[in-house]
Protein backbone atom coordinates (compact mmCIF):
# COMPACT_ATOMS: atom_id res chain seq x y z
CA UNK A 1 0.00 0.00 0.00
CA UNK A 2 2.82 2.40 0.98
CA UNK A 3 6.43 1.89 0.01
CA UNK A 4 9.49 4.09 0.38
CA UNK A 5 12.82 3.08 -1.18
CA UNK A 6 16.01 4.96 -0.40
CA UNK A 7 14.08 8.13 0.32
CA UNK A 8 15.91 11.27 1.39
CA UNK A 9 14.44 14.70 1.82
CA UNK A 10 16.60 17.80 2.03
CA UNK A 11 14.74 21.08 2.44
CA UNK A 12 15.86 24.08 0.35
CA UNK A 13 17.55 25.59 3.42
CA UNK A 14 19.80 22.52 3.61
CA UNK A 15 18.04 20.68 6.48
CA UNK A 16 18.20 16.94 5.93
CA UNK A 17 14.81 15.86 7.29
CA UNK A 18 14.86 12.26 6.00
CA UNK A 19 17.88 10.14 5.26
CA UNK A 20 17.77 6.95 3.16
CA UNK A 21 14.41 5.68 4.42
CA UNK A 22 13.23 2.18 3.39
CA UNK A 23 9.72 1.32 4.50
CA UNK A 24 6.82 -0.94 3.55
CA UNK A 25 3.34 -0.56 4.99
CA UNK A 26 0.76 -3.20 4.13
CA UNK A 27 -2.82 -2.52 3.15
CA UNK A 28 -5.11 -2.30 6.16
CA UNK A 29 -2.40 -1.82 8.76
CA UNK A 30 -2.40 0.54 11.72
CA UNK A 31 1.01 2.13 12.23
CA UNK A 32 2.49 4.64 14.68
CA UNK A 33 5.33 6.92 13.69
CA UNK A 34 7.26 8.13 16.76
CA UNK A 35 10.44 9.99 17.57
CA UNK A 36 11.67 13.23 19.07
CA UNK A 37 10.58 16.57 17.81
CA UNK A 38 12.25 17.44 14.50
CA UNK A 39 13.15 13.88 13.51
CA UNK A 40 11.12 13.99 10.30
CA UNK A 41 7.72 12.44 11.13
CA UNK A 42 5.71 15.21 9.53
CA UNK A 43 8.14 15.33 6.62
CA UNK A 44 7.59 11.63 5.95
CA UNK A 45 3.82 12.09 5.94
CA UNK A 46 4.16 15.08 3.59
CA UNK A 47 5.87 12.86 1.04
CA UNK A 48 2.87 10.52 1.04
CA UNK A 49 0.31 13.19 0.10
CA UNK A 50 2.77 14.94 -2.16
CA UNK A 51 3.14 18.09 -0.14
CA UNK A 52 6.86 17.46 -0.53
CA UNK A 53 8.80 15.67 -3.24
CA UNK A 54 11.76 13.53 -2.12
CA UNK A 55 15.22 14.73 -3.00
CA UNK A 56 16.13 11.12 -3.70
CA UNK A 57 14.37 7.75 -3.76
CA UNK A 58 10.98 6.32 -4.70
CA UNK A 59 7.66 6.91 -2.96
CA UNK A 60 4.81 4.59 -3.94
CA UNK A 61 1.28 4.97 -2.60
CA UNK A 62 -1.43 2.57 -3.75
CA UNK A 63 0.66 1.52 -6.78
CA UNK A 64 1.24 5.15 -7.80
CA UNK A 65 4.74 6.59 -7.98
CA UNK A 66 3.98 9.72 -5.97
CA UNK A 67 7.45 11.22 -6.45
CA UNK A 68 6.93 11.23 -10.21
CA UNK A 69 3.32 12.41 -10.14
CA UNK A 70 2.45 15.24 -12.51
CA UNK A 71 1.02 18.35 -10.90
CA UNK A 72 -2.32 17.78 -12.58
CA UNK A 73 -2.60 14.31 -10.98
CA UNK A 74 -1.88 15.44 -7.41
CA UNK A 75 -5.55 16.25 -6.84
CA UNK A 76 -6.50 12.66 -7.68
CA UNK A 77 -3.91 11.29 -5.23
CA UNK A 78 -5.26 13.47 -2.45
CA UNK A 79 -8.79 12.16 -2.89
CA UNK A 80 -7.32 8.76 -2.17
CA UNK A 81 -5.31 9.88 0.88
CA UNK A 82 -7.10 11.55 3.79
CA UNK A 83 -5.03 13.82 6.06
CA UNK A 84 -5.74 14.97 9.62
CA UNK A 85 -3.70 17.51 11.61
CA UNK A 86 -3.18 18.52 15.20
CA UNK A 87 -4.93 21.86 14.64
CA UNK A 88 -7.96 20.37 12.82
CA UNK A 89 -7.93 22.98 10.02
CA UNK A 90 -11.69 23.44 9.99
CA UNK A 91 -13.37 26.47 8.40
CA UNK A 92 -14.89 28.60 11.14
CA UNK A 93 -17.64 30.10 9.00
CA UNK A 94 -19.01 26.73 7.91
CA UNK A 95 -21.04 24.26 9.94
CA UNK A 96 -19.91 20.68 10.62
CA UNK A 97 -22.03 19.53 7.71
CA UNK A 98 -20.64 22.21 5.39
CA UNK A 99 -17.05 21.53 6.43
CA UNK A 100 -17.41 17.88 5.54
CA UNK A 101 -19.43 18.50 2.39
CA UNK A 102 -16.84 21.06 1.27
CA UNK A 103 -14.28 18.30 0.64
CA UNK A 104 -16.68 16.61 -1.77
CA UNK A 105 -18.08 19.75 -3.37
CA UNK A 106 -14.70 21.15 -4.34
CA UNK A 107 -13.89 17.95 -6.19
CA UNK A 108 -16.98 18.58 -8.30
CA UNK A 109 -19.01 15.77 -6.73
CA UNK A 110 -22.67 15.46 -7.64
CA UNK A 111 -25.18 16.75 -5.10
CA UNK A 112 -26.67 13.27 -4.93
CA UNK A 113 -23.33 11.89 -3.74
CA UNK A 114 -22.85 14.73 -1.26
CA UNK A 115 -26.26 14.00 0.26
CA UNK A 116 -25.35 10.33 0.62
CA UNK A 117 -21.71 10.50 1.74
CA UNK A 118 -21.85 13.33 4.29
CA UNK A 119 -24.46 11.70 6.56
CA UNK A 120 -22.57 8.40 6.27
CA UNK A 121 -19.29 9.81 7.63
CA UNK A 122 -21.01 12.03 10.21
CA UNK A 123 -22.70 8.89 11.50
CA UNK A 124 -19.37 7.08 11.56
CA UNK A 125 -17.72 9.78 13.69
CA UNK A 126 -20.83 10.15 15.85
CA UNK A 127 -21.61 13.75 15.00
CA UNK A 128 -24.84 13.44 13.05
CA UNK A 129 -26.70 15.29 15.81
CA UNK A 130 -24.24 18.22 15.73
CA UNK A 131 -24.11 18.69 11.99
CA UNK A 132 -25.58 22.21 12.12
CA UNK A 133 -23.10 23.50 14.69
CA UNK A 134 -20.06 25.62 13.99
CA UNK A 135 -16.54 24.46 15.00
CA UNK A 136 -16.41 27.08 17.77
CA UNK A 137 -19.41 25.36 19.39
CA UNK A 138 -17.65 21.96 19.57
CA UNK A 139 -15.19 20.35 21.95
CA UNK A 140 -11.67 19.68 20.69
CA UNK A 141 -12.48 16.00 20.24
CA UNK A 142 -15.61 16.83 18.25
CA UNK A 143 -13.64 19.21 16.07
CA UNK A 144 -11.05 16.54 15.40
CA UNK A 145 -13.81 14.02 14.60
CA UNK A 146 -15.23 16.56 12.14
CA UNK A 147 -11.80 16.82 10.54
CA UNK A 148 -11.62 13.03 10.36
CA UNK A 149 -15.05 12.90 8.77
CA UNK A 150 -13.85 15.40 6.17
CA UNK A 151 -10.74 13.32 5.51
CA UNK A 152 -12.88 10.22 5.03
CA UNK A 153 -15.71 11.61 2.93
CA UNK A 154 -13.89 10.92 -0.35
CA UNK A 155 -13.48 7.27 0.73
CA UNK A 156 -9.68 7.28 0.82
CA UNK A 157 -7.76 4.03 1.16
CA UNK A 158 -5.22 5.70 3.44
CA UNK A 159 -5.65 8.02 6.42
CA UNK A 160 -2.59 10.02 7.53
CA UNK A 161 -2.74 11.65 10.96
CA UNK A 162 -0.11 14.17 12.12
CA UNK A 163 -0.41 14.35 15.94
CA UNK A 164 -4.19 13.99 15.83
CA UNK A 165 -4.49 14.11 19.61
CA UNK A 166 -1.86 16.79 20.19
CA UNK A 167 -4.42 19.39 21.24
CA UNK A 168 -6.79 17.03 23.08
CA UNK A 169 -7.30 16.11 26.73
CA UNK A 170 -7.22 12.40 27.71
CA UNK A 171 -10.93 11.70 27.29
CA UNK A 172 -11.11 13.40 23.88
CA UNK A 173 -7.89 11.58 22.97
CA UNK A 174 -9.53 8.23 23.74
CA UNK A 175 -12.60 9.20 21.72
CA UNK A 176 -10.49 10.03 18.68
CA UNK A 177 -8.26 6.96 18.99
CA UNK A 178 -11.29 4.68 19.24
CA UNK A 179 -12.63 6.27 16.10
CA UNK A 180 -9.35 5.80 14.22
CA UNK A 181 -9.32 2.18 15.38
CA UNK A 182 -12.84 1.59 14.05
CA UNK A 183 -11.92 3.24 10.75
CA UNK A 184 -8.97 0.88 10.47
CA UNK A 185 -11.22 -2.11 11.16
CA UNK A 186 -13.29 -1.08 8.14
CA UNK A 187 -10.18 -1.58 5.99
CA UNK A 188 -8.56 1.86 5.80
CA UNK A 189 -4.78 1.94 6.23
CA UNK A 190 -4.02 4.33 9.13
CA UNK A 191 -0.64 5.99 9.75
CA UNK A 192 -0.30 8.18 12.84
CA UNK A 193 2.62 10.41 13.81
CA UNK A 194 2.35 10.99 17.53
CA UNK A 195 4.06 12.05 20.74
CA UNK A 196 1.39 10.42 22.91
CA UNK A 197 3.12 7.58 24.74
CA UNK A 198 -0.03 6.43 26.55
CA UNK A 199 -1.93 5.98 23.32
CA UNK A 200 0.88 4.06 21.66
CA UNK A 201 1.51 1.84 24.64
CA UNK A 202 -2.17 1.03 25.09
CA UNK A 203 -2.79 0.10 21.43
CA UNK A 204 0.33 -2.07 20.98
CA UNK A 205 0.51 -1.79 17.19
CA UNK A 206 3.39 -1.49 14.76
CA UNK A 207 5.68 1.34 15.89
CA UNK A 208 8.23 2.94 13.55
CA UNK A 209 10.77 5.06 15.36
CA UNK A 210 12.64 7.89 13.63
CA UNK A 211 15.79 9.55 14.85
CA UNK A 212 17.53 12.29 12.88
CA UNK A 213 15.67 11.35 9.74
CA UNK A 214 16.53 7.63 9.94
CA UNK A 215 14.44 4.63 10.98
CA UNK A 216 16.10 3.30 14.14
CA UNK A 217 13.45 0.78 15.17
CA UNK A 218 10.43 -0.90 13.61
CA UNK A 219 8.48 -3.21 15.94
CA UNK A 220 5.23 -5.13 15.33
CA UNK A 221 3.39 -4.65 18.77
CA UNK A 222 5.81 -1.94 19.90
CA UNK A 223 5.99 0.66 22.66
CA UNK A 224 6.44 4.39 22.52
CA UNK A 225 9.96 4.24 23.89
CA UNK A 226 12.81 2.11 22.59
CA UNK A 227 13.30 -1.32 24.15
CA UNK A 228 15.76 -1.37 27.07
CA UNK A 229 14.68 1.80 28.86
CA UNK A 230 12.32 1.95 31.82
CA UNK A 231 9.19 2.24 29.80
CA UNK A 232 6.78 3.14 32.57
CA UNK A 233 8.52 6.22 33.93
CA UNK A 234 10.12 7.23 30.65
CA UNK A 235 6.74 7.37 28.95
CA UNK A 236 5.40 9.69 31.63
CA UNK A 237 8.45 11.93 31.32
CA UNK A 238 8.14 12.13 27.56
CA UNK A 239 4.46 12.96 27.85
CA UNK A 240 5.29 15.76 30.27
CA UNK A 241 7.84 17.07 27.80
CA UNK A 242 5.38 17.05 24.96
CA UNK A 243 2.70 18.79 26.97
CA UNK A 244 5.02 21.60 27.94
CA UNK A 245 6.22 21.90 24.32
CA UNK A 246 2.64 22.29 23.20
CA UNK A 247 2.11 24.96 25.80
CA UNK A 248 -0.51 22.87 27.58
CA UNK A 249 1.36 21.89 30.74
CA UNK A 250 -0.33 20.04 33.55
CA UNK A 251 -2.18 23.08 34.82
CA UNK A 252 -5.86 22.24 34.33
CA UNK A 253 -6.51 25.85 33.39
CA UNK A 254 -4.45 25.40 30.26
CA UNK A 255 -5.53 21.93 29.22
CA UNK A 256 -8.49 22.16 26.87
Amino acid sequence: MISLRGVSLVYPNGTRALDAIDLEIAKGSFVFLVGHSGTGKSSLLRLLYREQVPTRGEVTVDATRVDKLRRSKVALLRRNVGVVFQDFKLLGDKTVWENVAFALQVTGARTKDVMRQVPRVLDLVGLAHKSRMFPSELSGGEQQRTAIARALVNNPKILLCDEPTGNLDPSNTNEVMDLLHRINLKGTTVLIATHNAIVVDRMRRRVIRLENGKIVADEERGYYLAAGGDRGTAAAEELELVRSRNGLGTNPLFSE
Binding site: R71, N80, V83
Partner: peptide, 17 residues
Protein backbone atom coordinates in the same frame (compact mmCIF):
# COMPACT_ATOMS: atom_id res chain seq x y z
CA UNK B 1 -5.88 31.06 1.99
CA UNK B 2 -7.26 28.62 4.56
CA UNK B 3 -10.02 27.52 2.23
CA UNK B 4 -7.53 27.21 -0.61
CA UNK B 5 -5.16 25.14 1.51
CA UNK B 6 -8.01 22.80 2.43
CA UNK B 7 -9.20 22.55 -1.16
CA UNK B 8 -5.71 21.57 -2.20
CA UNK B 9 -5.50 19.10 0.66
CA UNK B 10 -8.72 17.29 -0.17
CA UNK B 11 -7.94 17.10 -3.88
CA UNK B 12 -9.80 19.89 -5.64
CA UNK B 13 -8.51 20.37 -9.17
CA UNK B 14 -6.53 23.52 -9.96
CA UNK B 15 -9.25 24.77 -12.27
CA UNK B 16 -11.87 24.29 -9.58
CA UNK B 17 -9.83 26.28 -7.09
Amino acid sequence: RREIAIMQLVGASGLYI
